[in-house]
Design a protein around this nucleic acid. Structure first.
Lengths: 139, 139
DNA sequence: TAAAAATACTCCATAGGTATTTTAT
DNA sequence: ATAAAATACCTATGGAGTATTTTTA
């Protein structure tokens, strides 16, 4: 089972119609039909009652529907929360001299921003004496 | 994103090692490597710190890990609950005569068991008179 | 009969594999 | 020097498409 199965199932269960669901999903009707049969086979259960009057969910289908919606919501939430966690949440100001940048600072900066994209670097090139003054002004 | 991405991510996050995770998943190491990069690209975030001293999760990785475990649990739960909902939960005893079986009963039985696998049919062939007696005995 | 689902194929995108290189300690 | 991850490339499974048939109210 993959999320695709769950997404297609939820669309079909909502629309109560494979053909309509295939339109909202931008795929062809046979794809839904085949994939949902695959799902039913994997779960060893009939999920839909295919009637000309429209699709209906079996008790098993209803059960799966409840869980499926929750899973899709969780996935959205996971993506959103993870993206947020990776966003800028703090700034790090660094006073530096050009020689440090060439020797080691560049490498460190690259690693830091790669591994911690949530930290935004603000670089200030200044002579060591000015750096001390700047630090004292912060504190 | 598919469940595959989440499964591989969780394995890698648990083992803190792509190679070991690939063994537990019975796939090759490059497959995990490629798929998890794909995931990071989709989420537009770095999830792992690849260090020789071992893998580590970034804050974003930790966030995704929490959600990912929950999603996989929900999936297992969904499958289990759905299978249970489709299981036999009730028996339906039907007294019948052979002619009914040939004319319509067979078709009805087929549909019923297909659409409601949770109902177990118990068929009793008996003359109409006996059917009435049997019904009275139940009530 | 008509509308929807199922089936039969074809195709190609991509998951997965092997071999190798790169990286970092 | 070494262990692990990344890269390059290849193969093949199966996801997706079109055309058609089957079902059922």
């Amino acid at each position: 089972m993959e999320l695709r199965h769950i997404r297609y199932f939820v669309a079909a269960a909502r629309e109560r119609n494979f053909t309509k669901a295939s339109h909202t999903l931008n795929i062809s009707q046979p794809v839904i039909s085949r994939l949902l049969r695959e799902l039913e086979r994997e779960l060893d259960t009939v999920l839909f009652l295919r009637q000309r009057s429209g699709l209906d969910l079996t008790p098993a289908g209803e059960t799966f529907f409840q869980h499926a919606r929750r899973i899709l919501n969780d996935c959205e939430e996971a993506v959103k929360a993870t993206k947020e966690a990776g966003h800028v949440r703090s700034k790090l100001s660094i006073g530096f001299i050009a020689t440090a940048l060439a020797s080691f600072l560049g490498d460190i900066m690259r690693k830091l921003t790669l591994e911690h994209p949530e930290i935004e670097l603000v670089m200030h090139e200044m002579p060591p004496g000015d750096q001390i003054v700047a630090l004292r002004n912060i504190i």
